[in-house]
Simulated assay, not measured.
Amino acid sequence: MLEPGIQGHAALRVTTENTARALGSGELDVLATPAVAALIEKACWKSVAGELDMGTGTVGTSLSLVHTAPTPIGMVVRCDCELTAVADRRLTFTARVYDDVSEVAHATHERYIVDNDRFTHKASAKLNAD
């Protein structure tokens, strides 16, 4: 059963592939905000994945992200997250992201528990919509 307090972690090294220049979110060779968002989502979904019923997963539905400091190529960034609220299928997390020097971002992230097959079928049905 999912209860507040579950914690998760994820990390990545800043490379040329996850910079603002490479991801199209800016011109500089520093960690891109979209890469920070993906790191937060990864930490959150992985933190609860093992607690879910077979055949279910989570999908991100909102992310309120504040990216406060740049991180250069070569550094590692780490995300620590915590499940702070559970309301039926809605999960709310807080997250903080750090490089070797300081906090570089913080966020609130919401995910929903879904039936994987049903969700995939719903998405695939859009390919046949007229």
Rank of each mutant, 00 (worst) to 15 (best):
V76A: 09
A37P: 11
T68L: 13
F93C: 08
V76L: 10
G50V: 04
D88Y: 12
G50D: 03
A20P: 07
G57F: 03
A37Y: 04
E82T: 13
S47W: 04
L23P: 01
C81L: 08
A22T: 05
L63M: 14
A43C: 12
D29V: 11
L63W: 07
R89S: 14
T61W: 12
P72C: 09
T68I: 13
T16D: 15
R21Y: 13
F93E: 01
L52E: 00
E17C: 03
T58N: 06
L52Q: 00
D80C: 09
A49W: 10
S25V: 05
L31M: 12
A32W: 01
K46F: 09
G55D: 07
A87M: 11
L83V: 10
G26V: 09
D29K: 05
A69G: 06
H67N: 08
T92N: 10
L28C: 04
A85W: 02
V76N: 11
L91W: 07
V86K: 03
M54L: 15
A38M: 10
L23T: 13
A22D: 05
T61K: 08
C81H: 01
V30G: 04
L83Y: 03
A37N: 05
V30A: 06
D53W: 03
E51Q: 14
T84Q: 07
L63A: 11
E27M: 12
T33P: 02
T61M: 14
R78Q: 11
L31K: 02
D80M: 08
V36T: 13
G74R: 06
L39M: 11
G50W: 04
A69C: 05
D88H: 14
A32V: 08
T94C: 11
A20I: 07
G24Y: 11
R21H: 14
T16S: 15
L28F: 14
A38W: 02
W45I: 12
V30Q: 01
A87V: 13
E27A: 15
V76K: 09
A22R: 03
D29N: 13
V86H: 03
C81A: 09
G57Q: 04
G24C: 13
L23G: 06
V48P: 00
T94G: 07
M75L: 14
H67D: 04
T71P: 03
